[in-house]
Design a protein around this nucleic acid. Structure first.
Lengths: 236, 236, 236, 236
DNA sequence: CATGAATGAGCTTTCATTCAT
DNA sequence: CATGAATGAAAGCTCATTCAT
C-alpha cells in the first residue's frame, strides 16, 4: 500500500562516503533545484495555490521527478518546511553572541531576527501556509522539531547574564521574550501588504523599517531592564 | 473578470429605503449565508484551497448563486474581506475608553485585541490569505480602507492624555504602539500551530494565553510609562 | 466530505410525473449515452483498462459529465453493472414458459441463456470484471441484489412440475441446475478466445455453437429425466 | 514494441546444459521471482490493473529488471500465461488414470479439475484477463498451444474404453465432455463473487463446494452412461 | 428569479518505458 | 551485470465559470 512503486533514492545523508559520480551529482542537483523551486513557489502561492506543474517548470525539471524524489506534493511541502527551518537554524547558529554583554547581545538578536524575516520572506510565507493547515505537516516531521530549542536557550543565557550583572530584571522568561521579538518582526513582514493599505504608508521603505526596529529595540530593552535610564534608551 | 453575467440585485448599500418584500428578504438571506460560508471556508482553506463548491455546500445553496450575487470567486473573497474588517471595526467601536485613565484604557485595548484575535480566527486567517496574495484585493476595496484610522486615533488620544498627566513618555507614536500590540496578539494566534510544535507546549491552553497577555501588558506599559513603579508593573 | 460539490440530479425514477422539458430530455439523453458508452468500454477493456476519457469520447460527451451524473468512475461502473443486470432480468421476464410442459420449457431456458450470453458479450465481460474485483461493487448495490431470485424460481417451478408428472427425478435443486446451465453457456462465451486457441477451432462458428448447445441440452435433460429413452434424447 | 533494449539473457530453454555458476543462478532466481510476482499481480489486478511497479515490489526487485529479463510488460504477461499453462499441464500429467475403470477415472478427472481451479485461482484469473484481451497473447505463443491436446486425449480414451465395456454411450465427443467439466468447475470458481451475491450464499464454504462437485459428478455420469442404475448414481 | 446542464482547463498522480553509466 | 535517473503520456478528478431555459 506504500505509495512509491519506484524505489526512491535514500534521500539525505549517505552512509559510507563514496566519491559521487557524475550521475549522482546531477541527480542531487535535480533534487535540490526541485526543493528550491518548491520553496519559492509554495512561498508565493501557498500549498494549495502552488502547483507541482509550476514547481517543475521553475526547477527546469519534470513533474514526474517530484514524485521520484519526494513521493507526493505534500511530502515535498514537508521537505520545503524542513529546509527553511534548517536554514534558519543555521543562520541562527552563525550568530555569535557575548553573554558578558547582554544589552548589546539582545540588540543583536532583535536585529538578526528582523533582518532574517525581511531577507527571507519565504520563511514567513511557508510558516503561514503551514499554520493555515493547522500544523499538520510539522507535527509529523521529526527533523523540524529538533531545530526548536537553540534560539530560546541563547536568550535564556542572555537574560541570566543580564540579571547577574544587575542590568536585567530577574525571573524573566526567555520564551516570552522570544515570542515578543519574533512577533514584532514576523508580523511586520507577514502582514506588510494589509498593513500598508491599512496605514496608508509603505512599510517596506527603509526608513519605515528602521523606525520599526528602533521602536521594538526600545520596547524589548524596557521590558527587561531593571532600571530605565530615561534618555539613553528612549532615543535609541 | 467582467462581472455582469446577469443583472445582479443591487448588492450592498440600498439607495432609497423601501420596506423589503418577502422575495427581497429571502434573497438577502441567501446572500448573507453565502458570505458567511465564504468567510468560514476561506478562513479554513485559504483563497485557493476554498472552492466555490464547498462554499455553496456550506451555505446550503448553489454555486450558481455565488455568481449571481457576487459575480466571481474573487469578488466574493473581497466581500468576505470587507465583512471581517467591518466586523472588527464595529467591535472596536463598542470599546468605550476613558482617556482620563490612560493606563487602564491601554490595558483594555490590549485585552480587547488579544481577545478579538482569539475569538475571531477567521479574521486572522483571511488577512493571512490576503497577504499571501500581496494585498491585491484590499488595495482595490475602497470600503476596507475606511476602516483604518479609528483604532490608531484612539491610541493616540490615550498616549497624549497619559503624557499630559506625566504618566507616559511624551512623543510616542500611536502607530508604533498599535503595531506592537497587534503583532503580539496576532502572531500568537496566527502561528499557534507551528509555535506549539516549536515550543513543545500547547499555546491554546488558558494558562498559556493568560501568561502571554500578562507579559505583553507588562511590556506595553513599560514601553510607554515615564517612570516604572518597580513592583506594581513588574508583577502584572 | 461527500464528493459531489455540484448538486447532482436525482438519478433514477422521478417522483411526481411532470412533463419533461427539452432541457430535461437532453440531460437524460446525455446520461444514458454515457451509461451505454460505459458498458461498451468497460466490457471491452475492463474496469481498469476502460478510461473515463474513452467513455466520454464514445458517448460524444465530456469526461466532466461522468462526474456530474455519476460522481466517479467507480460509481459509473456500478451503474453499468446494475444496468446489465436490469436488462438481463428484463429479458428473462419476457421468457414465457409453460410449466405444464417442463421438458420443452427447460429446453427453452437453456436456449434463452445460451442466446443471451452470446448476444450480450458485455454482460459476460462486465461480470468478469466484477469478479476480478472480488465482487466489491455488486456487494454494495442494493438494486443488483433484487434481480436475483426470479430465474431460479422459474426453474424450481419447472422441476416440480416435471417431477409431479413423473418426468423428472424428484428432489432436484433448481439452484444447482441453474448453475450448470449458466456455467455451460457462460464459460463457452467468456473463454471463447483461449478455448479457440486451445482447441484449435473457432468456437464462434455457427455449427460449433449449435453443436455445443445440443450437447448441453442433452446433458441437462439427462440430468433431470427420471427415465432415459435411449434414442430420443441422445440424438436431440 | 521492439524488444531488444539490451542484450537479454537467453530466457527460456537453455541449449547445451552447462552447470550454472553463482551469477547465473542469482539471475535465474531474479527472473523466477519476477515471473511468480507477475502471475500473482496479474491474477489479482488484471493486465491493465497490474502495474510493473507493483510486480517489481512484490518480487523485491526493480522495474528495470522486468525489461531486462522480459522486454516489456506484455511479454511478461505472455510468460506468465505460458507458465500457468505449463503448470496446469504438469499437474494433469501427474494424474494417472486407469482406462480399464472408466467410471472411476472420469470421476477422478472431474475431481482433479474442480480441485485445480479452486487451488489455483491465478489460473482462472489469468485466463479471464487473456479473454478480455481477446486471446491476443496466447495466439502469439507457440508454447501455450502445445499444452492443449493431452487432456482431451485422455478423456477420449476413457470414453472409448467405457463404450467398449458397454458402460458409456458410444459416439460421445471428448471435447464436448471436457468443455462441460471445465465449464462447471471454472465458472463456479471464476464467478464465485457475483454468484455469491446473486444467490445470497457463500460459494466458498466447504459444504457448498462439495455439493456442487457431487451434482456435477452426477450430471457428467448421466451424460455418458448408457444405462442408469437408478439408485447408485442418483444419490452420488 | 432561479437553477440544472454544460464546459474545458487544470489539478495531482501513476504509468510503461528508455537513458546512461 | 545491474541499477539509479529520466521521461512524457495519460490517468482520474476538481476547478471556476457560462449557457440556456
Amino acid at each position: 500500500m506504500s505509495r512509491s512503486t519506484t524505489a526512491r533514492p535514500a534521500a539525505g545523508r549517505a552512509g559510507p562516503q563514496r566519491k559521487p559520480g557524475v550521475r549522482e551529482r546531477a541527480a542531487r542537483a535535480t533534487r535540490e533545484s526541485l526543493l528550491r523551486a518548491a520553496i519559492k513557489v509554495f512561498a508565493r502561492h501557498g500549498l494549495d495555490g502552488g502547483s507541482v506543474g509550476r514547481i517543475a517548470a521553475v526547477a527546469g525539471s519534470y513533474e514526474r521527478m517530484i514524485y521520484y524524489y519526494f513521493g507526493s506534493k505534500e511530502a515535498l511541502f514537508v521537505a520545503a518546511l524542513e529546509e527553511i527551518y534548517r536554514r534558519f537554524n543555521e543562520a541562527e547558529a552563525r550568530l555569535h553572541l557575548d553573554p558578558a554583554q547582554p544589552v548589546e547581545s539582545l540588540r543583536a538578536v532583535v536585529h538578526f531576527m528582523f533582518g532574517y524575516y525581511r531577507r527571507h520572506p519565504e520563511f514567513v510565507a511557508l510558516l503561514n501556509s503551514e499554520n493555515l493547515h493547522r500544523g499538520r505537516h510539522i507535527r509529523k516531521s521529526r527533523r523540524a522539531r529538533e531545530y526548536s530549542s537553540a534560539a530560546i536557550g541563547i536568550l535564556d543565557e542572555l537574560l541570566r547574564s543580564g540579571a547577574a550583572q544587575g542590568l536585567f530584571r530577574p525571573g524573566l522568561s526567555a520564551r516570552d521574550l522570544y515570542l515578543l521579538i519574533a512577533a514584532a518582526g514576523y508580523f511586520y513582514q507577514s502582514n506588510r501588504f494589509t498593513l500598508s493599505a491599512f496605514l496608508g504608508e509603505n512599510l517596506e521603505a527603509p526608513e519605515a523599517i528602521a523606525r520599526w526596529e528602533a521602536f521594538v529595540q526600545d520596547s524589548v530593552l524596557r521590558t527587561v531592564l531593571a532600571v530605565l535610564p530615561a534618555r539613553e534608551v528612549a532615543s535609541a
